[in-house]
Amino acid sequence: MAAPRDHRVLIPVDVLGGESVPATVIDAFASVPIVLLGYRELPDQTGTDQARDQYGTRARAELEELHTAFEDAGCLDVSSRLVFTHDRLQTFERIAVEASCDAVLLLNPAPVLESVLVAIRGEVNLEHIALHLETLLAGTELTVTFFHVVADETDRERGTELLDAAVDALADTGVDRDRIDRSLVVDGSPTAAILEAASEHDLLVVGESRPSIRRFIFRDRAKTLAKGTVDPVLVIRGEYLEADDTELTVDDTELPIGDETDTSTADDVDDPDNES
């Protein structure tokens, strides 16, 4: 039997771009292990060492303040990493792999956080998604609606069975069925249907089984959804990526955050000339 996952969530925050984590999100994720990734994406002509020297102190202070906010909310497992990078997407992927994060939260404002919409596409990873949701729901009064889109009426029965399986998987983790709802929509445009449904909820959760979080999370549907909704979007990775199997061209520099970061230093920069 595989070892249980701790459902660690990576939260990238553009600490020098005015981005922060809403208090409602901090409270909702207080029971989940968190990796705060403070980052700043730089223009090509700006060196990471130059940015570190010029902005490092201010960026570190912003990130430490955010770190403290999670601790004050009761989060017992929160770590912070600060990176200056020329490619935020590759950096997000590198950190997600190194920190064993199996979900990434794409931030949007969240004035209230009471209901969660979970868009599911198939049976793959239903149990993993359910376990992650159970961790998120612990200690909250959040309600969950599983949402599925079928192309035409001939798929309705299959879609209903999928939603039933999702509800059962979450209930099997101990979540009260009274907190779980389901919704099936017949629509030829799944993304548009998800966005419309998300407008009635406060947090959108999507899952994916592809092995590349960069391909799906940031350059495919989830990125579109994050841009199209006012809700935060939590993307649950279907599989861990092993560092040895991940070929990345990384041009970033990471600064230590007291005792909260790993052993990376400001000089830990991968070779930017490698081909991915």
Rank of each mutant, 00 (worst) to 15 (best):
D259T: 09
R156M: 10
D251K: 01
V250L: 02
R121E: 00
P43G: 10
D271L: 00
M1G: 15
T229S: 04
D231H: 14
R81Q: 06
L184S: 06
G38C: 02
A51F: 08
T261N: 07
A226D: 05
E161Q: 12
A192E: 04
N108W: 06
P109W: 13
A266M: 05
S80M: 06
S276K: 08
T263S: 07
F84N: 07
V104L: 03
R215K: 11
E41G: 10
T263R: 04
F146Y: 13
R121M: 02
V118I: 12
G258D: 08
G122R: 05
R237Y: 15
E208P: 03
D14L: 05
D271M: 00
I11H: 00
V167L: 14
G258A: 06
D49Q: 07
T145M: 12
G188P: 09
G47S: 04
A165D: 11
G122F: 05
L82N: 03
L255Y: 02
L36Y: 02
V230T: 14
I95A: 02
H7K: 04
D168M: 04
G47L: 04
P232S: 08
V15Y: 00
D172K: 04
L63D: 08
V149A: 12
L142Q: 06
I26V: 01
D202C: 13
T191I: 02
V9C: 12
T265M: 13
D220P: 09
E19L: 09
R221F: 03
P4R: 13
E127D: 15
F218T: 10
D267Q: 11
L82R: 01
E200F: 04
D267K: 11
G207D: 02
I180V: 09
L248E: 03
A197H: 05
A59D: 02
V185C: 14
E65Y: 15
D87Q: 05
L225F: 03
